[in-house]
């Protein structure tokens, strides 16, 4: 397989990983906040919610942290989760994940209660089954070396997406204890959350508080956002495209409202995603692919040179990105880099 083809497939896999991470987080949130029939009283969840660490936090006291998922089951129990569809093959690169879990394994402030505190919570590594067992062994080895490296309420819950007759997400506890008897029973045996219910409950959530692969953003813009404002576009004979003037700020705001943070529960502790910087980066990629003209001033207004694509739009952007990446690496004389995994 050529280098370009390898990279193309890797870029597509990154998109699938991101989408499945979002879906898994939504499914897990649904497990926490729903009782099967309706939403539980006082239940809420957020992606990347700004929580405040206590003064006793061993890593970062009295600071702000933004876990992937915060879900409150009741005014007395909630979970903090870090989600991972895939992990680096190098175990040395797992240390930051452990540190993050330790940072979250704390009496965090920021819950949906009067004092923003909660009496019981668990810190969960939500990890794909393909890496779950290895991560548990890694965690146990680290704990043996240094007992303080793993927090008292830390646990590991594996997930996979079953693709049988009825499609569902499956979650099971693989390490640690869950301090809520109902949730403990469900996760001990393993529990299925039907994909149908996840989509029905959250049909339009596409992002979480982690930068998506640029191919995913480019596809979203090309197949949904730009066509929706095409009526304002004029046809340009020279570029054989329809020229749409868009601002990074306006597009960011709309994507947040439709598919991101504003589409979920919003209060002063909510973070915004997708972020303006991610959208700007995507617009710059379009410039690179000669599908946009950058601002000629200090504004954030781009001119998109819009035309319809034949064939799969996602694959098209993956090919464009892999071609640019290979070209860059050939110029530098080194292997192309994969997109970075961690946000912190």
């Amino acid at each position: 397989m050529t280098e370009k083809n390898e990279l193309w497939k890797a870029l597509l896999n990154d998109v699938v990983d991101y989408e499945q991470t979002v879906a898994a987080m939504l499914a897990f949130a649904a497990l926490i906040i729903h009782d099967g029939d309706s939403r539980r009283a006082s239940a809420e969840f957020g992606f990347g919610r700004r929580m405040t660490t206590s003064s006793e936090n061993p890593i970062r006291p009295n600071s702000e942290v933004t876990p992937d998922l915060v879900a409150q089951k009741s005014t007395s129990y909630g979970i903090i989760a870090e989600a991972k569809k895939s992990l680096s093959r190098e175990e040395a690169q797992w240390i930051p994940h452990l540190e993050r879990l330790l940072k979250y394994d704390d009496n965090l402030i920021g819950w949906w209660t009067t004092l923003e505190t909660i009496s019981h919570s668990d810190t969960i590594m939500l990890i794909h089954q393909s890496r779950g067992r290895q991560f548990v062994h890694f965690l146990e080895r680290q704990k043996t070396k240094d007992p303080s490296s793993v927090g008292p309420t830390t646990s590991v819950v594996e997930f996979n997406q079953s693709e049988e007759t009825v499609n569902y997400f499956f979650f099971r506890l693989e390490y640690g204890r869950i301090n809520d008897s109902e949730l403990a029973e469900a996760l001990d045996a393993g529990i299925q959350i039907p994909l149908d219910k996840v989509i029905q409950s959250f049909p339009n959530i596409r992002f979480y508080d982690s930068q998506p692969p640029v191919v995913l953003l480019l596809t979203q813009l090309w197949i949904d956002y730009f066509p929706s404002i095409l009526a304002e576009a004029s046809y340009d004979e020279q570029t054989r495209s329809r020229q749409i003037r868009v601002s990074v700020s306006a597009s960011t705001k709309e994507l947040q409202s439709a598919y991101g943070s504003v589409a979920l529960f919003k209060d002063r502790r909510s973070v915004e995603f997708p972020r303006k910087g991610w959208i700007r980066e995507a617009f710059e990629r379009l410039v690179k692919h000669k599908l946009a003209i950058p601002p000629s001033d200090s504004s954030d207004n781009y001119v998109i040179l819009y035309r319809s694509f034949r064939g799969d739009v996602r694959e098209r952007f993956a090919r464009l990105e892999s071609a640019v990446s290979v070209e860059k690496s050939e110029q530098k004389g080194q292997m192309p880099l994969f997109p970075p995994e961690d946000k912190e």
Binding site: E19, E163, N167, T219, W222, F309, V313, R314, E315
Partner: peptide
């Protein structure tokens, strides 16, 4: 139309 296949098999 234009299309993008996010998932094609088995759902």
């Amino acid at each position: 139309s234009m299309y993008a296949v996010s998932h094609g098999n088995p759902y």
